[in-house]
Design a protein around this nucleic acid. Structure first.
Lengths: 145, 145
DNA sequence: TGCGTTGTTTTGAATGATTCAAAACAACTG
DNA sequence: CAGTTGTTTTGAATCATTCAAAACAACGCA
């Protein structure tokens, strides 16, 4: 059945990353997958419904490990707690609401990655480029004009 | 003399922003101007040489006010303390060292604000776009290969 | 199948940048 | 120069995140 397939795929991805397969890791992977942009606390809440008693610290550990293994992507907008999402590998960017902190995906900008190559690298060995758009989300606009 | 001109210009800019002219504000403005990217603590240290006894809290207040008035620009890379710089108004971006947190300016790439228009705004009213490049700075590369 | 190694989770506490709140104070207006 | 309003100070609190050590479990190998 579908959930077993997801489970096995998750196991395989953990192994491929050289990580041991554990209940907390499977649960976190499942909690984040397809659920947008969740912070550690939200992940903890979700995971607890499957694994009551799991500690928030473990959720932090797991999220850290999964993000490092690139099974999850961490986004850390100024002014709010770090969020995690399951979309990895593509270079999509984010919209962040300046009012409520809501995060939305943006598929990569106008045509091709225009800003991804800076003019002068200042001696830096660049590994990634991050684009964040700031504004007010639909809900916040509706709420207060 | 030159320093008096700077001082008077700073006063004028504060007034233009509707802010009262105070010693802490002038000192912070001066401390940040032309000194790269400083965090609150570094600003505090610098300002104390002119204004011994100024509180760190005041530095936070002043930086907040000046950033809101756009006399300073705040940058807040994930994983380090917020920095402030005096270059405002232009849409330049930043290089951040993943190892030591050092920040360098990048003049905006292709012409003007290339990344400022996402394909789909998801209902957001976008006000700004932020581009951050992550990599290792020259010093960190030299230090450990 | 069982044991040891190594990596993971738990528990409990600490950290540190930033913010909150109220009182003392100073800049600007008239 | 006095009143009002905004600013600075003082002192404490917040909160996401990390540190450290002990308890525990997954996986490889015998």
């Amino acid at each position: 059945m579908a959930t077993e397939n997801r489970h096995e795929q998750a196991e395989a991805r953990l192994r491929a990353a050289g990580l041991k397969v554990t209940a907390p890791r499977l649960a976190v992977l499942d909690a984040v997958s397809g659920n947008g942009h969740l912070d550690a606390d939200a992940v903890h809440t979700r995971v607890m419904s499957h694994l009551p008693g799991i500690s928030l610290q473990s959720v932090y550990n797991v999220l850290g490990a999964l993000a490092e293994a690139e099974l999850l992507r961490k986004i850390d907008p100024a002014g709010s707690a770090a969020r995690y999402e399951s979309r990895t590998g593509d270079n999509h960017h984010h919209l962040v609401c300046t009012e409520c902190g809501a995060v939305a995906d943006v598929d990569c900008v106008v045509g091709e990655s225009p800003c991804l190559t800076p003019s002068n690298t200042g001696g830096f060995a660049i590994t990634t480029a991050e684009v964040t758009f700031w504004g007010r989300c639909a809900a916040c606009q509706a709420a207060s004009g």
